[in-house]
């Protein structure tokens, strides 16, 4: 009896949690105006792809979709490379000022990123990089949390492996590429999802740094579209579906790594 009660509670609350998504998807398949009725309809009377057609033909959302994919992939690739090198060095090398440097980085994790945006904007504007892909890429090339995550993982790699390779005459970079990187794959996947989703979902910085519609990422394009289409729930829902679907696919495919990363991040003392 208690079990049935618990299960029904879990099922009801899960459905309630997912209703916004279900409603979003079903509204996105309706004809213009079909969602602006009372009582609200939960399923389209006829399923049409009209909204998606409008987005792709008239509103050129494919371009924004490309921008989002491209920037997320590039930022993820570069930052994985930079962060993993730094994280490995902080875990396994001895060098002057290492602990001080690492602590300085950790302390600065509490600085809200909004602070940097004014000077970043001015800086990039003076070198003509505002409204370019570079504005998003170079500001995302490395981050403290990523270095921290990789370092934690590399600490568990035995020194003997590295020393053995060194005896065999491997250079430091070969050790990093042939020994460390393969062993760090799980954490690289974790950090990769964080970075990919972080870049994909980011809003404030792209809103500031990208000024042409053709350069917008999906969230910025959506917020811009919302200004003119406050009365078109069907169209806006289709835009939201397009923005959310890739995120859900990436998450569902790699959720174990993602959740492990959250747990790791919570024990950073």
């Amino acid at each position: 009896m208690k079990k049935i009660l618990l299960y029904s509670f879990l099922i009801v609350t899960s459905v309630v949690t997912l209703i916004p998504f279900i409603w979003m998807l079903s509204t996105s398949l309706m004809t213009d105006g079909a969602a602006s009725v009372f009582p609200p309809k939960f399923f389209p009377e006829e399923v049409v792809l009209q909204q998606y057609q409008t987005l792709f033909t008239r509103l050129n959302i494919a371009r924004n979709f490309f921008n989002s994919i491209f920037l997320s992939v590039v930022v993820t690739t570069i930052s994985l490379f930079f962060n993993s090198m730094a994280g490995y060095a902080f875990a396994k090398y001895r060098f002057k000022g290492k602990d001080k440097l690492f602590n300085l980085l950790l302390v600065n994790m509490i600085v809200p990123s909004q602070i940097t945006m004014l000077p970043l904007f001015l800086m990039l504007k003076s070198v003509g990089l505002i409204n370019t892909y570079m504005a998003i890429i170079i500001t995302g090339m490395a981050n403290i949390f990523g270095i921290f995550l990789i370092r934690q993982h590399c600490l568990s790699i035995p020194d003997s492996l590295i020393e053995a390779a060194r005896m065999d005459g491997a250079t430091d970079f070969q050790i990093y590429r042939k020994i460390i990187l393969p062993l760090a794959v799980p954490i690289l996947v974790t950090l990769g999802i964080f970075t990919f989703l972080g870049t994909w979902n980011d809003f404030l910085w792209p809103l500031i740094a990208l000024t042409d519609e053709s350069m917008y990422t999906l969230p910025v394009a959506l917020s811009n579209l919302m200004l003119e289409h406050t009365r078109d729930p069907e169209l806006m829902m289709a835009g939201s579906v397009l923005t959310i679907i890739p995120v859900i696919i990436v998450f569902l495919a790699l959720q174990r790594y993602y959740i492990k990363g959250i747990m790791m991040g919570s024990v950073k003392e």
Partner: peptide
Amino acid sequence: LSYFMPYVTTLVAVAIVWRFIYHPKFGI
């Protein structure tokens, strides 16, 4: 998984969805 789903999704997109959920006349 279902409880966690909203966390990973794009804030701007779900804010748009909720804006319509909150619609005084037609919102669910």
